[in-house]
Design a protein around this nucleic acid. Structure first.
Length: 560
RNA sequence: GCGGCCGUAGUCUAGUCUGGCCUAGGACACUGGCCUUCCAAGCCAGUGACCCGGGUUCAAAUCCCGGCGGCCGCACCA
């Protein structure tokens, strides 16, 4: 028996499109898997949206092409492809060049084509044409034939950057603030394998925290957690990927020695909390710093949360990227919109500043009216730039006229500055949903002789409570059904079962991680009590029926 | 994408090499009934499979070709 088999058989998840032969990289969630997924998402929302107060949004999965040109995905998500001129067969350039022991990255496109001219099509011996770029994002078109090119998003993050201006207004211009998004993303993987670990369509939950790198390096809640410990594997300890010596440090130490700042540490801590709450055992968790060559194009530093699994080894379940101001800057550049935030100082500051003014009496002789008008305008707008140029070169050219320092007057002025414009930097904690689901199942899967059970935290278990009549006669089923509906009315997901022996019914519930079972027996008919059995210990206690719903909610930690 | 191995009910598997005795066998699970006073008990009955397509043959789960999918290694994994 293994957990994948259990997942399929009991309806957690299975490969999609089975009756048509399937397609790699797609999985269905079954009834139990769907419940489990929502419970995980709810746990996540409780931490990030409710406790931390990050604003949750929901943006489209299909995006126009410009967005991914600006974000860098169109350039960085490509593979080169080449077609044979006579038979039309397509090949990956990388595979072709491998025979020459060359890598594409080290060559320009002209050089690549030059090399390919010496090779022949393995299929028909024909010549190769020009290289084409093959992007592994899912491409689609928006609107009817000839419409706009679009892509399915490879991360939910872009939606949060695109709407930054609006979101910043809603956050009333304050920094730092965080945006959260839960949703699907798509990557047309070359060869997805490893079941639910590597999907072409997957679920993720991401947060973008926007902050002012000059002001917000400390986090108000950091003090509460600074002595908590985490296990980390910094880049300096990795002679190669996935291997190396882990160190146990406090968040304070990590913050001083390894991480960008307290801010970053705090979010690493939240990740640990989240993963422990959904049932990842602490001993199977570590934070690993990505090596330079692994990092995404937008990241200056990335630490992954990794979970050690039996089947797949260390699995990355969350990443924490320091995206700097890369995304906002790029979107500013490509959209022409100002995505900076005005940060007011606590009190206005007096600043002495050098300002440059055109000397009108001299300039009137040098240039015509219209050009002079333009110069005045530009001097107002780009005062600093002109001053710098004059200082560095001693002159500047404007509208074909050479202007020297003598044409300008430089004055020292006091200026009242009330704040500054900041392009926020971004820390991105990004979580997979599908991968943790697998990890939770595998790491909580226990076999004790004949008995198989999933030791899921009650809060995330799909079914909370089994409800059984001890035997299916003498009016017991009727009472048990009443108990069942009592629980459901309180929002507790139950499973009513009266078939087979009582032991078999407990076993069925154990197998899918149901933490509690309530059994109605003959004593129930006399005094209105029923037994409540715990999954992990198999112990039973007796409770009055009407107390059961609140009791279970308290046990789950939902009620206090 | 490359190379190796593989694909039989819900699950695990027998059968494949050596084509016919396969109307495809078993175990567990599941459904219905009987029984059953707390941990997969028992009895009876039942549902349910040769990945898809083509070929060879009198005859294909079995041999051949193609596709799809899976596992392992390489590559890829923003």
């Amino acid at each position: 028996m293994d957990v994948m088999e259990l997942a399929k058989r009991r309806g957690f998840f299975w490969p999609s499109f089975e009756i048509y032969g399937g397609a790699g990289g797609f999985y269905d969630y079954g009834p139990l898997g769907t419940l489990l997924k929502w419970n995980i998402i709810e746990t996540w929302r409780k931490i990030f949206v409710i406790e931390e107060g990050f604003y949750e949004i929901d943006t489209p999965t299909v995006n126009p092409e410009e967005i991914f040109i600006a974000s860098g995905h169109v350039d960085h998500f490509v593979e080169q492809m080449v077609r044979c001129k006579s038979c039309g067969e397509a090949y990956r350039v990388e595979d072709m060049l491998e025979e020459l022991r060359m890598s594409v990255e080290s060559l320009t496109s002209e050089e690549t084509e030059e090399k390919l001219r010496n090779l022949k099509c393995p299929n028909c011996g024909g010549d190769f044409g020009k290289t084409e770029e093959f992007n592994t994002m899912f491409r689609t078109s928006i609107g009817p034939a000839g419409g706009k090119t679009g892509y399915l998003r490879p991360e939910t993050a872009q939606g949060m950057f695109i709407s930054f201006r609006r979101l910043s207004k809603i956050a009333r211009g304050k920094l730092p603030f965080g945006i959260a998004q839960i949703g699907r993303a798509y990557r047309n993987e070359i060869s997805p394998r490893q079941g639910v670990i590597r999907l072409r369509e997957f679920n993720m939950a991401e947060v973008e925290i926007f902050f002012d790198p000059e002001e917000n390096s400390t986090h108000p809640k950091f003090k509460e957690v600074e002595n908590e410990k985490i296990r980390i594997l910094p880049a300096e300890n990795q002679e190669e990927r996935k291997k190396g010596e882990e160190v146990e440090v406090t968040l304070r130490e990590a913050s001083e020695r390894y991480f960008l700042n307290e801010f970053f540490s705090y979010y690493i801590w939240l990740t640990k909390r989240f993963l422990l709450e959904i049932g990842i055992p602490e001993k199977a968790l570590r934070f690993r710093q990505q090596l330079d060559e692994e990092r995404a194009h937008y990241s200056a530093d990335t630490w992954d949360a990794e979970v050690k699994t039996e089947r797949f080894g260390w699995v990355e379940v969350a990443g924490h990227a320091y995206r700097t101001d890369y995304d906002l800057k790029r979107h500013m550049e490509f959209s022409g919109e100002d995505l900076s935030v005005f940060v007011a100082f606590e009190s206005p500051r007096e600043v002495e500043k050098l300002k440059v003014y055109p000397r009108m009496e001299r300039l009137r002789k040098k240039m015509k009216g219209q050009a002079l008008g333009k110069l005045i305008e530009i001097t107002k707008k780009e005062n600093e730039k002109i001053l710098r140029e004059l200082n560095e070169k001693g002159e500047l050219e404007f509208d074909g006229v050479r202007l020297t320092r003598e044409d300008f007057e430089v004055k020292k002025e006091k200026e009242r500055v009330t704040g500054k414009k900041v392009i926020p930097h971004v820390i991105e904690p990004s979580y997979g949903i599908d991968r943790p689901i697998y990890c939770i199942l595998e790491l909580n899967y226990l076999e004790e002789g004949e008995r198989i059970y999933l030791r899921l935290p009650p809060k995330i278990a799909p079914i909370k409570c089994g409800v059984f009549p001890l035997v299916s006669k003498d009016g017991l089923p009727e009472v048990a059904k009443e108990v069942d509906s009592l629980l459901r009315k309180r929002g507790i997901y139950t499973y009513y079962d009266e078939s087979g022996s009582i032991g078999r019914r407990y076993a069925r519930m154990d197998e899918v991680g149901t933490p509690y079972c309530v059994t109605v027996d003959y004593q129930t008919l006399e005094d209105g009590t029923a037994t409540l059995r715990y999954r992990d210990t198999k112990e039973q206690i007796r409770l009055r029926i009407e107390e059961i719903p609140s009791f279970i909610l308290r046990e789950m930690g939902v009620l206090c």
